[in-house]
Write a protein that binds this DNA or RNA. Structure first.
Lengths: 144, 144
DNA sequence: ATGGTTGCAAACTTTTTGCACTTCG
DNA sequence: CGAAGTGCAAAAAGTTTGCAACCAT
């Protein structure tokens, strides 16, 4: 199940959103970025190379939508900064390990168990609807 | 073990940092905020009421240090925003559940097991040095 | 046609920086 | 005294907004 621009555009349609030129351009670009991460500024720069007429706001707006569609992941780093990433596992629940030395991002399937989530609900008297989990450390290359 | 301004200032000293007027003011203020959360702007406003001479940059710099000292927690919300919080559990490892309706923050002790962390290390070929875990959902008051 | 979408530019929010002055130790 | 810390103001990042024109459907 490789991700294609069509899949992304289909997701827009199913949300009742239109398929437009800028969105098409973005979809094509994003599938090529799989496995790498970027800031919105960097994404905009990439977009400009394909269509210099696209505005920055359009990119910000598209990123917001793609996050809601769960297609684009926001990756948090230990220093509090964040980058975006169109993951191999796009659409699948997963988390990220980020190297505090080189910034490498690794997709990891590890997650909390149902029991652990139930425990949170109980002790916090809280309905858990979602969570975010990030691992920080050092990748194989940056190990000492 | 109640937290006191002295404890905070002591932590500064042990890091080789000086105890200054602004830091004293901040320490006193922070122990009174335990259990509530704030933005840096809000913190600065509170600081100004005690000493109108303190600059914004000083507050930003102090917040950065207090985070490194693990005394001040940065709480992330589901919408991507964040606030700071001087927790009851200051210094103890814990996480947060935030209500996406009213913004309430609940401190929770639930965490990953050693096995789960070991699994991440193994599958990602990655030395895990830290992690961040946030729960999103609805608190008792905002439940439908 | 018609309402969602876009580009632009300006406004905004949040955080950082350089530097002369101050203050702790 | 000397280095760390501070206040200020300006600048840098990062993001949002209003609106007239545009274009999918």
């Amino acid at each position: 199940m490789t991700i294609t621009p069509e899949r992304i555009l289909e997701a827009f349609k199913q949300k009742g959103l239109r398929v437009t030129g800028p969105r098409r351009t973005l979809a094509c670009l994003l599938v090529e970025t799989v496995g790498s991460d970027f800031t919105i500024e960097e994404l905009w720069d990439m977009v400009l190379k394909r269509d210099p007429a696209i505005g920055r706001a359009t990119v910000f707006r598209a990123v917001e939508i793609l996050q809601e569609l769960q297609l684009l992941d926001r990756v948090e780093f230990s220093n509090g900064s964040h980058r975006f990433r169109f993951c191999h596992e796009a659409g699948q629940h997963h988390h990220h390990a980020t190297c505090s030395s080189c910034g490498k991002v690794i997709e990891v399937p590890t997650c909390l168990s149902a029991e652990q989530l139930a425990t949170v609900s109980r002790v916090a008297n809280f309905t858990v609807e979602g969570h975010r989990l990030e691992f920080f450390g050092r990748c194989a290359n940056c190990r000492v």
